[in-house]
Design a protein around this nucleic acid. Structure first.
Lengths: 203, 203
DNA sequence: TGTACATCAGTGAACGCGCGTTCACTGATGTAC
DNA sequence: TGTACATCAGTGAACGCGCGTTCACTGATGTAC
């Protein structure tokens, strides 16, 4: 065997990480293979010895960026990753809706940056996203005062929607207001007492 | 004057409407000028006698699709437009989170389909979006049991986030669950008693 | 009424560019002698 | 120890294609005579 054991794996990881940041910042369709490889200090030709297609990298970059639990995924802001270790849901909500997260999409939640684009990608890519999302939802649910999958889902949707709206708006004051409104709603949501019959049927 | 009074205006409108549907379905970046003009039964060359740039059309298509109030904007599903006439917020929430809206993005809410992409567009485009969004938020606020801009903002973010999540997920059952969870959270939100802390709703 | 004309909405070739993907190659590497 | 070698990660030219934009033109139109 030539080259060190995991030389190629290291390079591969560099590409995946560069991709997950670029995609979040500019959108998937707006970033070409050549630029991605350039980020990793390589030329575009070698791409296909690492991945069968751009779409395969897309799926892998999404999975990587959704993997908030593992220590290796350094891309997610410390404040967000911290919640997953401590299970402090209120701290997570506040961190998620902080202005820094709004202003740094490249290191932030990949769902907020790319959900709509993901929904237009082929099923395998969406399936990879779905699997990781389920994991995140389960962790959120476990951290709820009264665990309930419906509340976890609604909470995540609210956080995502709020962050996206705050990012799109061209008025700084309104953007900050939106973050604050979303935070209040999210905090209220996790303390809701629901009627037991309200939960939607499973499967 | 050659050609009828508003011959050119009619053509222009056809292009804007085709664009707002195509953009919602495939994303802004994924739809070229040639395809847009083809939709309107024209060739690409004439585009620049109607619009100074693709970006100008983008802004106009967004504004057009956000204009739910006027009768002419037929693109938005009847059920959604209906709310704006009656002010029935609960009906609006239910209509917004119905599976048909999830399954037909091209005639649905343009914010849900394109917020993230809009946030990466030049400021003039974002400003146009912001202006129309403010109008929608004001109308939602007015329809609240207890008018409050923060609740209107959080409600819109929740609806948008829920619809997007339901669209991206590759599992039909989970997608339906997400819609139901978002609906419950949205309905709870508008009945929240704010001010005196985070009292859960009675409904 | 019919014809000649000016207008201008719409046409389609052309521009430079970047896309995703393929492929024959180069040259740095660790190993064997 | 030094050298010759096989491996294979990475290179860069090339492919067909679609992008946004420009521009000289064509030909359908309503008007003037």
């Amino acid at each position: 065997m030539r080259y060190k054991e995991d030389h190629k794996n290291t390079t591969r990881r560099r590409v995946v990480e560069a991709a997950s940041a670029r995609f979040r910042k500019h959108g998937i369709g707006a970033v070409g293979v050549a630029k991605l490889m350039g980020d990793a200090g390589l030329t575009h030709g070698g791409f296909y010895s690492h991945f069968p297609s751009k779409e395969a990298l897309v799926a892998e970059a999404i999975v990587d960026a959704m993997d908030v639990t593992c220590e290796c995924g350094k891309s997610v802001p410390e404040s967000l990753a911290h919640f997953f270790r401590t299970g402090d849901l209120e701290a997570f909500i506040r961190a998620y809706l902080r202005p820094d997260h709004r202003d740094q999409p490249d290191t932030g939640c990949i769902a907020a940056a790319l959900v709509a684009e993901i929904s237009r990608h082929p099923k395998p890519t969406r399936a990879a996203f779905t699997k990781k999302l389920s994991g995140v939802l389960t962790m959120i649910e476990a951290a709820l005062p009264k665990p309930d999958p419906a509340v976890a889902q609604a909470l995540f949707a609210t956080l995502m929607g709020t962050l996206q709206l705050a990012r799109a708006v061209a008025d700084a004051a309104l953007s900050n207001q939106i973050l604050a409104s979303g935070e209040a709603a999210a905090l209220a949501l996790i303390h809701t007492k629901r009627k037991s019959g309200r939960t939607p049927p499973t499967t």
